[in-house]
């Protein structure tokens, strides 16, 4: 995978993450879940920042940034608060995987950025109830 392909893959994942977080945020039941709303809002903001950053990085690398799809399949039913948390954790795991791949396919500042994004996704997954693993983002290990 070339560096541009790796960044494009990460950008595509961020488009999906933003869509899903938008839906999850709108589905938080009632107003009795302020902590969950805060987590989802923070995640949305972080992923929007990464999408914008990746768009710039792809352009800087000479690529045409991939566009978002019209819609994406949700990771689960995403109805109850527990399902919303689980769905968010799935999104973070997917992002961790593409950022780990990007680490392996880039160098210097792009790699440094991907390393930070991988750590952020791995830690954010915990905030949604995910469990620590020995090799976040590297599914075959």
């Amino acid at each position: 995978m070339t560096p541009v392909q790796a960044l494009q893959q990460a950008l595509a994942a961020e488009h999906a993450a933003l869509y899903v977080y938008g839906v999850l945020g709108a589905r938080v039941p009632g107003s009795g879940q302020p902590a969950l709303i805060a987590l989802l809002t923070a995640a949305y903001t972080a992923h929007r920042g990464r999408r914008d950053q990746l768009t710039a990085m792809v352009r800087a690398a000479g690529g045409e940034p991939v566009a978002a799809e019209l819609s994406y399949r949700l990771p689960n039913a995403s109805r109850t608060a527990a399902q919303l948390r689980t769905g968010a954790a799935v999104i973070e795991r997917r992002c961790a995987a593409v950022y780990a791949a990007a680490v392996g396919s880039t160098s210097r500042t792009d790699r440094q950025w991907a390393i930070g994004a991988l750590t952020d996704a791995a830690v954010r997954e915990l905030s949604f109830g995910g469990s620590p693993t020995a090799f976040p983002g590297v599914e075959e290990l």
């Binding site: 791949a101 392996g104 396919s105 620590p132 976040p136 983002g137």
Partner: peptide, 16 residues
């Protein structure tokens, strides 16, 4: 690159 990927993953695990 593949080694960097694993090292970054280990670092993320330590952060977790």
């Amino acid at each position: 690159g593949p080694f960097a990927r694993v090292l970054a993953s280990m670092a993320a695990a330590a952060s977790q």
